[in-house]
Design a protein around this nucleic acid. Structure first.
Lengths: 220, 220
DNA sequence: CGCTGGCTGTCAGCGTTCTGTAAGCGTCCG
DNA sequence: CGGACGCTTACAGAACGCTGACAGCCAGCG
């Protein structure tokens, strides 16, 4: 976990850095607003702790710029006690959470973990199998980032096999899961479908267990 | 954006409905607690405004039931002035925000926007996508500062896609979010809408994923 | 009050893509 | 050898999505 701490007060920054490292985060520290903005814009962090009173550019402006540019990294802002408007402005500008100074470091750690978990939760509908990556959000199977253009039916089949990997799935079971209830029993639709997927992703992606059904190939 | 207003005071409900519609939300209204619970449980809303004093079932119970069932729709509760404990209970029960009656409608609108944005993982009221800038406050899409003159429906569509960027959105989902609950199932309104947006912003702004739905184009 | 213009949903027609069917063939195994 | 099983290919109907025309509706305005 890579965290950027944008804080100009040395004492606070030091405390944070030490505790976060102890908690297992990789910490990078920045005290200048201009540079902090640049790093947040160009580097990839799992979360950013942002003090609102930075030199050069103030924290709110930095945050707004990131959001306007589409950077969705979770941001936790630090604000002084009693600065109620600052917090509201921060949330408006796109902060994910805030902590009031002075704070208990433990609290920061806990909130940071929550933030990162939430951010990852949004992205966890992706499953790797072999060299492929199946993404439910985009309904895509990609190989090295190259989309494989599966049709809906093909995608359903791959998705089902991947979710039940390690098992042999009978044709009947496949039929029941990717087709409507009533369906020609003596149809070879599944066989055709399997062939089509093989043509796209490679013959050994799906293994035939003659007499039993299909399974993901070895290494998938 | 589809909002459920669960409020039994006609005057308040009316005020809310009018203002929210003017602000671009799709509003559905419900005064009975039992029914409100059912709709929140079965329909998909972007946010729910919940009065705590509903007939049949009170708001707190409804909220708790939703949360217990895993419904994470952002909920903003309405509470009477001075009912400090109610608010605490509400937050405990899983409310995302609260507003005290009597309220300024503008405040509700602002908080609602913040809630929806937060729930969608975005947090700024101005979002960049490609060469365009979408502004939720002014309801405008601009390119280099030049307004793009989208109609309300067109704006809703773009806004929804941008909020859920990186995902494929099915026609059904789009229908549910930018039209009222009951809507001709087999209508091609969404297709027409997509075509109109493409005519204005460029054909590749919206990508068609045949059989799956639509998504923002690459680079947006 | 009627006219006008913008916004939207409906519809019919069209081209494209998807997908189940069917027939023929290969392969495995008793 | 023969039958069961699975693969391949071609094909046609169905599903899907796009488009242009049109009509209802509403707001603004003379």
């Amino acid at each position: 976990m890579r965290i950027l701490v944008a804080e100009d007060d040395d004492r606070i920054a030091e405390t944070l850095t030490t505790s976060l490292k102890k908690a297992g985060f990789g910490v990078e520290r920045e005290s200048d607003g201009e540079v902090a903005w640049f790093r947040g814009d160009t580097e990839v962090y799992d979360a950013i702790i942002l003090d609102l009173g930075l030199p050069q550019i103030d924290g709110l402006t930095i945050l707004k710029r990131w959001r306007a540019a589409g950077r969705l990294t979770p941001v936790l802002i630090l604000t002084a006690r009693g600065q109620w408007e600052e917090r509201v402005d921060g949330i408006e500008a796109g902060a994910d959470d805030y902590v009031v100074k002075p704070f208990h470091v433990q609290e920061i750690v806990a909130r940071l973990r929550a933030l990162v978990r939430r951010a990852n939760g949004l992205a966890s509908s992706r499953i790797a199998f072999g060299k492929y990556l199946l993404d439910l959000r985009t309904m895509e199977v990609t190989s090295d980032g190259m989309p494989m253009e599966l049709t809906p039916q093909e995608f359903k089949l791959v998705s089902y096999l991947v979710h039940r990997r390690g098992r042999v799935i009978s044709q009947l079971e496949i039929t029941e899961h990717i087709y409507n209830q009533d369906f020609e029993r003596d149809s070879n639709a599944v066989e055709v479908l399997v062939a089509r997927v093989r043509k796209r992703l490679g013959a050994d992606v799906i293994k035939t267990r003659r007499g039993f059904g299909y399974a993901l190939g070895d290494g998938y």
